[in-house]
Computed example of a mutant assay.
Amino acid sequence: MNLDEHMVMERIKNDLLDSFDEELEMELGKNFSAEQAADGVDNDDNSKRQLERRTYFKELFRLQTELVKLQEWVADTGHKVVVIFEGRDAAGKGGVIKRITQRLNPRICRIAALPAPNERERTQWYFQRYVSHLPAAGEIVLFDRSWYNRAGVERVMGFCSDEEYEEFFNSVPDFERMLTRSGIQVIKYWFSISDKEQYSRFLSRMHDPLKQWKLSPMDLESRRRWEQYTKAKEVMLARTHIDEAPWWVVEAVNKKKARLNCISHLLSQIPYEEVQRPLLALPDRENHADYVREPVPKEMFIPELY
């Protein structure tokens, strides 16, 4: 087995463990302790990984509890929040978005992940298709990529002209200032990974049948144009880092640390407080003597294979 093959196998193993963690998070929720998470790992796992998983679960559940409090405060006060997630392909944006929304109400906290513009959208004002996804009062919108596509992939891949590129930089500071003046809080994150780490993640996706769908021809081309993307990122951060909507860089080589650090920072950016809710009580079920439950035909039930 050569070095690349060994790297791929190790990466797939670690990704499978991450997926296992993810399933435990979803299945067991708050009744699940960090110690149980660490105990669930394979026997050949070392103590350092167990400690890291124990810490990760403990902090993740604590931060997700705070996110629920934040959600309640946003809904109660009518606050409006836009959170932008940008970064290279495979930088981990989707992973942190998943952890943020995992236990929240999708009617309050929703994801905007827009596809490439269609023919009609390409003739519109550039920001027009994003405006319809902005939050109303009491909402949080997480943009999994955003209007900054023009400063990144569109610039590098030649999908916009030099004039459109310059117009974007002339417009975006005013656009974001307009949003903040209208009461929308704009928070922007750039997920930073190394050349080596992206290479490893791409190799893992190429060899993992469950993740091959994540790789597109555009992703592979972005790998070849690493340096062009770096330059585009540097220009973008320099020209759109404004007081009203500054950029925040997340060191994302370690996925789990990046998730915890980003969620913790996001919570620190919003002045939320715990909202006191009245205690709920289940009402007694009504019973009527004339009620008869009709049987469901057996052919309507799905086969019980498990």
Rank of each mutant, 00 (worst) to 15 (best):
R107G: 03
P271R: 00
N43K: 11
N46L: 06
L179M: 14
R205G: 01
L63S: 04
V153P: 01
I97W: 02
D144W: 10
E163Y: 06
R88G: 05
Y148F: 08
F127M: 11
V253Q: 14
K298M: 08
R11N: 09
E154Y: 00
V131S: 08
W125K: 04
Y56V: 09
W147V: 05
I187H: 04
F20N: 07
K255E: 04
F301T: 05
S161V: 00
L17E: 10
E166L: 08
S19F: 13
C109E: 07
T180L: 05
L267A: 04
R225Y: 01
M26D: 15
R88I: 04
E119Y: 01
R205H: 05
G94R: 08
D21L: 15
N46V: 02
M178H: 02
G138I: 05
R120W: 13
L142N: 01
G94A: 10
G183E: 10
E234S: 00
K257N: 14
Q269V: 03
L210C: 00
L28Q: 14
Q71W: 03
M178L: 09
L237I: 12
K256R: 15
I193A: 07
V186P: 01
G29V: 09
L70A: 03
E234C: 02
A116K: 15
H288L: 10
N31M: 10
W125E: 10
R129H: 04
N118G: 02
L267W: 12
Q185I: 09
H288S: 09
L305A: 13
L16V: 11
L67Y: 06
F32T: 06
Q185Y: 04
S146R: 02
V275I: 11
M26I: 15
F169R: 08
L179T: 00
S19V: 10
E166I: 01
K48M: 10
A116E: 13
E286W: 11
L142H: 01
S33K: 10
A90H: 03
M7K: 14
L260D: 03
R285D: 13
N149M: 07
E59C: 05
I187K: 03
N118S: 05
A34S: 15
W147L: 00
F61P: 01
